[in-house]
Amino acid sequence: MKSTTSPVARYRTKIISEVRYHYCQPHGNNIVEYCDSMSRGMVENFQRFDRDQRFDYLHFNDWHAVQALHVLQDRNTLLTYHSTEYGRNGNQFGDWWEYKEISGKEWYGGLIAKRVTAVSATLKNEVMHLYNVPDWKCDVVPNGIVPRQFRAEIDAGEVKQAYGIHPFAPLILFIGRLVYQKGPDLLIEAMKIVCQNHRDAKLIVAGEGDMRQFLMERARDLPANFVGYIPDSEYIRLLNACDLVVIPSRNEPFGLVLLEAWSAEKGVVASNVGGLSENIDTFVDGLKVEPEPGSLAWGINTIMDEPSQAIALGKKGRKKVERVFMWGPIGKKVTETYSRVVA
């Protein structure tokens, strides 16, 4: 059968900084079907370019592309876990079909991939425990960041005023999906305690999610502003204008917001879980607390009692970003992992 459109025309290609990006257009009635369709498109697209010059390594990310990994499993393959379905579900098992389908793919990917990486030691343990991935097969490679993208020279007072906040009032920022895993409800409860000590403190909650309505009701009497989804540029303005970033997650395999806050030289109060737990040194570059309101409130009060301390912690955090989380050293780690992939 003759196709009316040539395969080349069906796929969009883009070159950014000498890297060729190929796109496909998946379809599906649910997330699982959608990802299967995407995987088929990826493989089809891949084979067009693999003919003349064989690729040395194939690197897959998360369960979404496991179907493609399955087809190409005889090659030098690498699978990176960014999180697990169990973790995204707030450290709980689920009994609905998507949960089973997705965690099944996560298990199968870990089984057939020649090598596996996880973005933190916590996630590595989680993957080993949940999916029986052997220790020798799994490396920890953290996420990287371009700190320049998040640090901006901005007049904090002007941004605060745009939100109706006094220029000198301490501003706490939460950014993330408003879902159970990210713990925004814990922060709202903590704010009730914080406001007793710091009557001028303000909270901005940025992000969308199914908990929003619930949270807004709980925060009715609090100086909290739910700004919903914000574009990146507005995030940068808020991130650089705020005095403290709080990450109250219940489960956080890595916690990219931490690196973003550090890039902007901001003090951080975060839950002592996952990647956050591994990367923060308490009272050196941030404060780790338990994911419950009392502990969070203690952390927030401690930092806000001593504003210069928040600044000092943020500066130290930025130093750590420049030392550990720039793409240079991380690229090196990935390359090392490639060299351990054995076909």
């Binding site: 020279e153 901005i154 574009p231 540029s233 507005e234 940068i236 303005r237």
Partner: peptide, 12 residues
């Protein structure tokens, strides 16, 4: 000065 509809975003 790079901006967005809500104002300056801190990059010049």
């Amino acid at each position: 000065h790079f901006s967005s509809p809500s104002g300056f975003i801190g990059h010049t």
